[in-house]
Write a protein that binds this DNA or RNA. Structure first.
Lengths: 150, 150
DNA sequence: TATTGTTATACTCTATAACTATA
DNA sequence: TATAGTTATAGAGTATAACAATA
């Protein structure tokens, strides 16, 4: 009965979640970042200089939370708050040179990590994993409530 | 070139981490629990009535953290602190009837969730996923520092 | 009147250090 | 002297509500 392997499969998934989280946390700490702060920087790199309101929306957190994250990122030299041309209420969160540098190093770390995870894996194994992951992901997405993070 | 699919694969993994976390958090909240508190209860069910020290060790957190988690679990009626027979310094964290009940309902929720994730999946797909997950997990474990949570 | 961001306040998880009660 | 657990304190992430400045 295939269902006998279900607990294993769920256990593998959960352990993966835990270990990936630990690894990410540890790795980001070496750059002086936390997962939440890195998440903001990630979005910032995709969107370019952004208002905090925009960041709050895309990150799916409150304005208050963004204020705190940006406060700490300013204090640690990753970003600055620039005046928003055309709306004096708003600020434009912008990378410092140091912030840009760290983001670039993060990208190469990501490449290394990917190599570690999949580099030495047979094509069949890799394809089976990717197809299975995509499948599971589709099921979870379908199960989850309205994709709130508009 | 297979490396072209690497970013996809890592992206799938990370999205999976995020979504599984959200789903777990939401589901536990319905039972009046958080992920950390549920983690403690989970260990408690495996080990039976335990001292806080023992819980701190197996969970890999500080004694102070366990004090806080147990405080809240006592306040919300999931466990009690019983005297430790044979060591008057220690307490035995013990399920209440309500705690036991919720743990049982969590188990059936887990079965449902597993059914949702894998139920409608072909055998080949399922096997490919499980094999791939086990493979990746092995790589991460090998990469991580000393398994600190003794 | 509506929006941007901040201050005020609060809750959760986490930790280290100091301290109490027991071994 | 060493251990179990608590209090004191602190930092991070999260949130809501009230408020200021600006649209």
């Amino acid at each position: 009965m295939r269902r006998d392997r279900y607990p294993d499969a769920l256990g593998l998934l959960l352990e993966l979640v835990v270990l990936l989280n630990e690894d990410m946390t540890r790795s980001l700490a070496r750059d002086g970042l936390t997962v939440s702060r890195a998440g903001l920087l990630w979005r910032l790199r995709e969107s370019g200089p952004s208002s905090q309101q925009a960041l709050a929306n895309t990150l799916g957190v409150s304005a208050r939370t963004v204020t705190g994250l940006v406060d700490s990122l300013v204090a640690t030299g990753f970003v600055t708050r620039e005046p928003h041309p055309g709306d004096r209420r708003a600020t434009l969160v912008t990378f410092t040179p140091h912030g840009t540098e760290v983001m670039e190093s993060m990208r190469s770390q990501q490449v290394e990590f990917t190599e570690l995870l999949f580099g030495d894996m047979s094509d069949a194994r890799f394809d089976g994993l990717v197809d299975g992951l995509a499948d599971v992901l589709g099921r979870i997405r379908a199960h989850l409530p309205p994709p709130s993070p508009a």
